[in-house]
C-alpha cells in the first residue's frame, strides 16, 4: 500500500476517543454512558491495531501465508486481550445499570445518585 499522509487511522482513533469522552462526561442516561465506554474501548482497539500495522504486511500466520512481511503480532495479542476485557466490563456495567434501575426506578445519572455525599 502507498504511503498514507496525515496518520489517518491515528486521527480516527483520537476522534473516537474525543466523542466517547464527550458522551461519558455530558450524557445523563446511564445506558448512553455505557455506550460511551464501549466506544472508548473500540477506539483503543483501533489505535493498537493501527500501531502494529506495517505497510504492505500480511497477517502473522504462517499457514499458507502469501508473500510479504508480516504485521506486528504483539499489538494484535494485546487487542485480543482488550476485546475480551471490554466485553466483560460491558456485561458488568449493564448489570449494574439494571440494578440501579430496579432500586431507584430511574437511569438518569443525576437523579439516581444514591451515594451522593
Amino acid at each position: 500500500m502507498e504511503h498514507i499522509p496525515l496518520n489517518f487511522p491515528f486521527l480516527a482513533a483520537m476522534l473516537l476517543v474525543g466523542i466517547s469522552l464527550y458522551i461519558i462526561v455530558f450524557k445523563r442516561n446511564l445506558i448512553k454512558l455505557v455506550m460511551g465506554v464501549a466506544i472508548l474501548s473500540s477506539a483503543i482497539n483501533l489505535f493498537l491495531v493501527s500501531l502494529g500495522y506495517r505497510a504492505g504486511g500480511v497477517a502473522p500466520i504462517y499457514t499458507d501465508a502469501p508473500e510479504g512481511s508480516m504485521v506486528l503480532p504483539v499489538p494484535q495479542a494485546l487487542t485480543l486481550t482488550n476485546i475480551v476485557i471490554g466485553v466483560a466490563v460491558l456485561a458488568l456495567m449493564l448489570t449494574l445499570v439494571i440494578h440501579i434501575y430496579r432500586n431507584t426506578g430511574d437511569i438518569d445519572s443525576h437523579k439516581s445518585r444514591i451515594l451522593k455525599g
Binding site: H3, I4, N7, M14, L15, V74
Partner: peptide, 28 residues
C-alpha cells in the same frame, strides 16, 4: 483542550505503517 492535545500528539507522531519492530521481528 484534551482532544486538541491528543490530535496534536497524533499529528507529530511517527508515520503510519512504519513501526519500530525489534521485539516483533524476533517473535516473527
Amino acid at each position: 483542550i484534551l482532544v486538541s492535545l491528543l490530535l496534536w500528539g497524533v499529528l507529530v507522531m511517527r508515520d503510519f505503517g512504519y513501526p519500530p519492530s525489534d521485539m516483533d521481528d524476533y517473535m516473527i
